[in-house]
Design a protein around this nucleic acid. Structure first.
Lengths: 245, 245
DNA sequence: CTAACTTGTCTATTGTTATAGACAACTAAA
DNA sequence: TTTAGTTGTCTATAACAATAGACAAGTTAG
């Protein structure tokens, strides 16, 4: 690639920039997705830094579970490539990621009721301050957290969505149990941010990691909004794929 | 929001984390989008750091053009909120951003011919190694760079796309001049990364900034692929909005 | 004009990051 | 067994990041 070197005195430590580069190179396939990393001395030359700085980067990625170092042998890639999360009219987590991972599941972290904020009310097409049910979930593929989401439902229409989710561990099935046989994605807004402390904890990220944030609303067959959700995806584990058909 | 405080000894300096938080709060409207920031002492209390650390963050955002400090008066927000870039069947830069900015334009940085990589060949539905035309462009809204893109076209079908772009300064018009009256987006893949050195230069970002990367292919009315493009959006200036209809 | 409040500048100290060099410990191949 | 190549550990030093306190310089309201 074109001279993509490191930036100094920018508030981001060199070892972290290098760790991010290595992680990204593994994910995109620029570096061997499996097998061995170049020796520390060669990486130091390549990035124009001291060997100890490279070692700090490698240590961070070891902590993260991306690399594994063996004395005398070398440093090896551990984790597989990025998952691809499809966003289309019929967007469902397990169906979308299913083919790419051995197992998927969505856990309920917390549920409760609250008054709808302006944003939530607008997306659910109800009056601000109306009661809504909020679900906080984390989705995993092969035991690795991939995304976390906060979903809101109109409490007047789906008073039991939380217990239904508790039984089925799936938004799609919980909605089915509440009488919504089918639903479609109305719109999705995507941004990218640095991970918050909560993201880091729940998605098991390293500090400085990036999350893809989506804000989406789903509607039933009649076009009535039924769910509004804000999701946060670990950007080093997943990419979003939009099918325009 | 819930205790989203700062992370220490993570390779990302506190002043940079604070700068990113303030920038993001301005963009999302959590802090006044215009008007005055709270005094440095209050921000220091809020983030649990020394006033000098807050000052470093503010200095970085001043350098970036987001804030403006005036001795004795306070610190003020300069730049407007995030643009929303719609991704749909008919995705075009100027039409999409047009309503939100005073002026938009796309500049050609470089063009040339090369042999198609596997990725490019697959997306253009040609044989790997076939000749393709590559265009490197930067798009601006109100003079601020919003995205940069690399586009590939089948050289056999669009031998003059580079000169056509030079005349019209628009992909849509250049394609029209080459006989493609209409085209639609086939698919879009989105990821997020830290900005590369090139991103920082071309999009005028600060180090540690985030870019949204999209890889998209467009096809003509017959469904034949005509363009494959990799774009990089400044994540603090733009969000991507997907319309599923 | 005065008082309260704000940003700007200076000094000093401590902890983190980066560099440099040396050598130990381990692995694999000659 | 030897040798070359690799990761692991240690010491030392310099640059940057963060804290602490004090005061100057500017603005605004009373």
């Amino acid at each position: 690639m074109a001279g993509a070197l490191l930036e100094r005195k920018t508030g981001v430590a060199l070892w972290r920039q290098i760790a991010d580069l290595i992680r990204s190179d593994i994910a995109t396939g620029a570096t061997a997705r499996e097998g061995r990393l170049p020796p520390e001395m060669e990486l130091a030359r390549r990035y124009g830094v001291n060997r100890h700085t490279v070692r700090s980067a490698i240590a961070a990625l070891e902590q993260e579970g991306v690399l594994r170092s063996e004395q005398g042998r070398g440093t090896f890639v551990r984790r597989r490539a990025r998952l691809s999360y499809p966003i289309a009219k019929r967007t469902r987590f397990s169906a979308g990621i299913g083919g790419q991972a051995g197992s998927t599941r969505t856990r309920l972290l917390k549920s409760g009721r609250e008054d709808a904020s302006d944003t939530v009310a607008e997306n659910l097409d109800i009056r601000p301050g109306s009661e809504v049910v909020r679900l906080e979930t984390v989705s995993e593929a092969d035991g690795v957290p991939v995304s976390r989401a906060t979903s809101w439902f109109d409490a007047a229409r789906f008073p039991d969505i939380d217990t239904a989710f508790g039984q089925h561990a799936s938004i799609t099935k919980a909605l089915a149990a509440c009488g919504v046989a089918d639903y479609v994605r109305k719109s999705t807004v995507i941004e990218a941010r640095h991970a918050s402390a909560e993201d880091i904890e729940l998605l098991r990220l390293s500090a400085g990691a990036i999350v893809l944030v989506t804000r989406a609303s789903n509607a039933d067959a009649d076009g009535r909004p039924i769910q509004y959700a804000e999701s946060r995806f670990a950007a080093d584990r997943v990419e979003l794929k939009i099918e325009n058909d």
